[in-house]
Every structure is written in structure tokens, then in C-alpha cells.
């Protein structure tokens, strides 16, 4: 499943869809950035409520497929700008992290 397909399937808001065809192969949830870099896998959809621009750098270094902001949180203005500049997929959902992860897992299981 591509990031664009996941975005449409879960009715997420594509704040920055820099790489729409990037395959999503798994998921990870967490807000402590070093935990994410230590445990998330390349190709994961990363669910978080962190909104500062460091999440874009972490997503880029950890090579996740996309960031999924939970709870409808608003990214800092420079976060969106960083995502566009660094070509990182940034999506947003209204649900909490648990519901988003469940939906991502269900979509990937099909």
C-alpha cells in the first residue's frame, strides 16, 4: 500500500504528500524521538502527537514512509516547511494514536 493510498483509505489529511508512491510496510507509534529512531523500521507509518520540526528530521533519518499526526494536532509552521523542503510525507488524522494504529494495521493486513 502506498502512502497516498493509506491517506485516502483512512481519510487522513495530506499536509505534505512529497512522496505519494512511497510504500507503507508497517507502523510505529511514539513521541520520544530517540525511541522512534531506535525502534521504528524503514517504511513504517509513524504515528505521533509531536509537532515541532525535529519530527521531520527524525522521519527522514529513520526513513519512515510517513508521519501521521494524531488527535488533529497542528504542526508548527516551520514543521510543514521542513517537510516540504526535505520531501517527507506528513499526514494528519483526527483520531487518537490507538485508533489510527488499529486502522493502519487493518489496512496493511488486507
Amino acid at each position: 500500500m502506498t502512502t497516498a493510498e493509506l491517506c485516502a483509505r483512512l481519510s487522513l489529511e495530506p499536509l505534505c504528500l512529497a512522496e505519494p508512491d512511497r510504500p507503507v510496510t508497517g507502523g510505529y507509534a511514539g513521541d520520544l524521538l530517540s525511541w522512534v529512531m531506535g525502534r521504528a523500521q524503514s517504511g513504517d507509518a509513524w504515528v505521533t502527537i509531536m509537532t515541532n520540526r525535529n519530527v521531520v528530521a527524525v522521519a527522514s533519518m529513520a526513513d519512515v514512509a510517513c508521519i501521521v499526526l494524531a488527535e488533529g494536532v497542528e504542526p508548527d509552521a516551520d514543521t510543514l516547511e521542513a517537510a516540504q523542503k526535505q520531501g517527507v510525507n506528513l499526514l494528519r488524522g483526527e483520531s487518537g494514536a490507538f485508533a489510527l494504529c488499529a486502522a493502519i494495521a487493518a489496512a496493511l493486513a488486507e
Binding site: 513521541d31 520520544l32 524521538l33 530517540s34 525511541w35 529512531m37 531506535g38 509531536m50 515541532n52 525535529n54 519530527v55 527524525v58
Partner: peptide, 15 residues
């Protein structure tokens, strides 16, 4: 508050 300081930086560098 930014999500850093979890005490995983050096372990990640080694990992």
C-alpha cells in the same frame, strides 16, 4: 518537551 532526552541517543549510536 521537544521529544528528546529519553536517554536513548548514545545507545542508538552504538546500535
Amino acid at each position: 518537551e521537544l521529544g528528546f532526552g529519553a536517554g536513548m541517543g548514545l545507545p542508538n549510536m552504538k546500535k
